[in-house]
Design a protein around this nucleic acid. Structure first.
Lengths: 199, 199
DNA sequence: CTATCGCTAGAGCGATCTATCAAGAACGAT
DNA sequence: ATCGTTCTTGATAGATCGCTCTAGCGATAG
């Protein structure tokens, strides 16, 4: 049970999940074939069905959960590093803009494309994306509440933040511009500032 | 050249575009086959390549432009009907929430799913989505400028609105809840109120 | 009536998709 | 050394993909 070698390349399963995550986020779920994933992961085709007996759908669910958790940690790190929540929000949006530019407008939200694709067509995967979003909302609510916001304000601020971020990603990737991320980030920062000032 | 009969069913080309628009918005571009489109449109398969010699990509581009223009008119109508811009914003978001619930969380933004799918994989279609978004930004900027905002404020408010709307659609469809639309709408309304008050 | 042309109609092509399967390699336990 | 388990490996099945092609229908003009 080679879970994770301390040295050398990651395990086959890890390589498959990583490659799947990258391709799903860039090309979507239906737009990515298993053949392409195993080619990118340098893994044998059969290994997919060894590690994921449920096939593409099970791989998709695992990718959603894994990348969702990783992105949640990214948000938490930005909020904990910043001196105050408003700065944390700004940092998170500018960081997202940097990543977007560095990857040629490919890497935005790790699950948004898949989420829209499966929302009305694949109930198990829709639930996986819903669980990730719910987790992110809990994460943000806790962070803003810790900063002094009421429970209700913290939750609404988080949902507004996630909405602005996801939508800005859509516009930014289509327009190949970081302007939406900058404007949306500033808008959320302003709202956070207003909500945190008036308890 | 049967462009549009005054009575009876729409032309074959119109039925193909309508069916394509509905399926692309719900299942995405790569997730929808031409066979499924012609079945839904009750059109012969060959007609697709008669009206769209460029194949699926050309059909996709026409769908994007057509539904983009229609959705832009929906926004303009909401803004012109409302007594003031802030109310217009609220109406637009609540209207979107109603549509979403009525269609079982299927009909949100007509081009968002496709836009994310093709952003890094299909340059012609990416450009089509970019043109639609650019048009929407121009539409909103004009509306807010007419209401008294400066050119810069009007543009940023529009981009913030579109970001919040698109992102709220992502969350709402995945979570099967209208809460993101309500919260995001209120957030944008608050920002619009602030920006329009202080010129 | 005949010729023309826009459109209908679907069989079929090569490619690609997900998924299955059987056999072999690697490795630890006894 | 032998067994058992885990993982690797790719050939292949069966369905579906986008797309091409030819044949025929129906309305209109000469």
């Amino acid at each position: 049970m080679n879970a994770g070698p301390a040295t050398g390349r990651p395990s086959t399963k890890e390589r498959i999940v990583t490659a799947g995550a990258e391709l799903f986020r860039r090309q979507g779920y239906t737009g990515t074939g298993l053949k392409q994933i195993v080619a990118e992961a340098e893994a044998p085709f059969g290994s997919v069905y060894h590690f994921f007996p449920g096939g593409k759908e099970q791989l998709g669910a695992e990718v959603v959960r894994t990348s969702g958790a990783a992105y949640g940690r990214l948000f938490t790190a930005a909020m904990e590093t910043a001196p105050d929540p408003v700065t944390g929000v700004r940092d998170f949006f500018t960081g997202a803009a940097h990543t977007l530019v560095e990857t040629g407008y490919a890497d935005a939200c790790p699950i948004a494309t898949l989420a829209l694709e499966v929302a009305s067509t694949n109930e198990p995967l829709r639930q996986a994306t819903a669980e990730v979003f719910t987790g992110w909302i809990a994460l943000g609510t806790a962070a803003f509440a810790k900063a002094g916001a009421g429970e209700r304000e913290a939750r609404e601020l988080t949902i507004a933040l996630l909405s602005a971020l996801e939508g800005a990603f859509v516009l930014a990737r289509a327009l190949r511009s970081t302007e939406p991320l900058e404007v949306a980030g500033e808008s959320v920062a302003a709202r956070a500032s207003a909500l945190l000032a008036a308890p």
